[in-house]
Amino acid sequence: MNEIDYITPKNLEEVFRAVEKKKRKIKFIAGCTNVIPYMRGEAISPELLIDLSSLENLNYIREENGIIAIGALTTISKLTASEIIRNQSPILFSAASLLGNPLTRNRATIGGNLADASPAADMAPPLLALEAFVHTKRGEGEGREISLDKFFLGPNKTVLAEDEIITHITFSKPKDSARGIYIKLGFRNSMAISVVSIALMIEMEGKVCQKARVALGAVSPTPIRVYRLEKNLEGKEIDQEIIQECSVILKEEISPISDIRASAEYRKLATSVLFKRAIQEVLKGEKT
C-alpha cells in the first residue's frame, strides 16, 4: 500500500509551495464526496492530498457590476441558500437544489463538481448555459480564464494541469427578460446521478427568440452546449415545427453511451422529450 501524505494549506502561497516541493502524484481535495469513493475503489492513487477546504477566501458568492462570481470552495448548500443565486441565476439554483442530497450538498463544492468533470456533473449544464468562465491559478504566475465550454476534455478530464486549481467561476448576470429552466432526469429525487439533464435559457422579443443557450449533461463524454440547436432557435418564432426540427438536431448532436443507468437509445429519446418539455415550460413564461 502506498504512503499518502496530507496537508491543509491556509493560503494560495502555501498551496503552490507544497506543489513545488513535492514531486509526487498530487490530488487537490475539498468536499471529498467523490474523492473518497475514488480512493476506495482505487480509481485514483494519489501520494499527496492537498486539502483546499481551509482556503476561506475562495468561499464566497458576489455580484459586482453585473458579474456574478462564485469562489471554488463554495459548497452546493451555500448556493441553495444564496439570494443572489436564487434571484439572478435560477437555473443554477435549481441544479444546486437537485445535486446529491442535503448531506452531500453540505460538503460538495462548485469547484470540485467542475474539476471532477463527470459527464453528469450537475453544475455544468446551467453554467454552460450561463456562458460561465473558470478562473484558475498555477504557481505564482497569472491565472487563466477558461470558457467553460473549453474546459472539459472527457470523462473526469479537464484542461487543468495537475498542479492548477480553480479559484472561482464567473458569469454575466442574465438579462431580466431571460428565462431558463433546468430539468434533471434521474432514478430517484435524492442522490440520483443524471440519466439526462438539460439547462435551457432563452431571451425572447415578442414572439421571436433573440438568444438561446442549451446545455446537456450525461449524453456525451463531457457536459456539452448544443450550438447547432441554439442557432436553429435564434431569430425565429418558436412553433411546434421548430421544436420538432430541434429534437431531430438534438439526436444527431449527442453521443450517449449505454451504462448501468440507461441505454444510449433511451438517452436519445429522453433528451428529445426533456428538450420539448423544457422549451414549452419556458415559453409559458415562467421564470424558473
Binding site: 491543509t8 481535495i29 471529498c32 464526496t33 473518497i36 486539502d51 452531500t104 453540505n106 460538503r107
Partner: peptide, 19 residues
Amino acid sequence: CAVIFNGKAVNSCLTLALQ
C-alpha cells in the same frame, strides 16, 4: 453515518478524519 460537522449534517463516510 450522518453526523453534525461544524453545525451541518454530513456523511462521515465522505469526510476524511484529517478534515
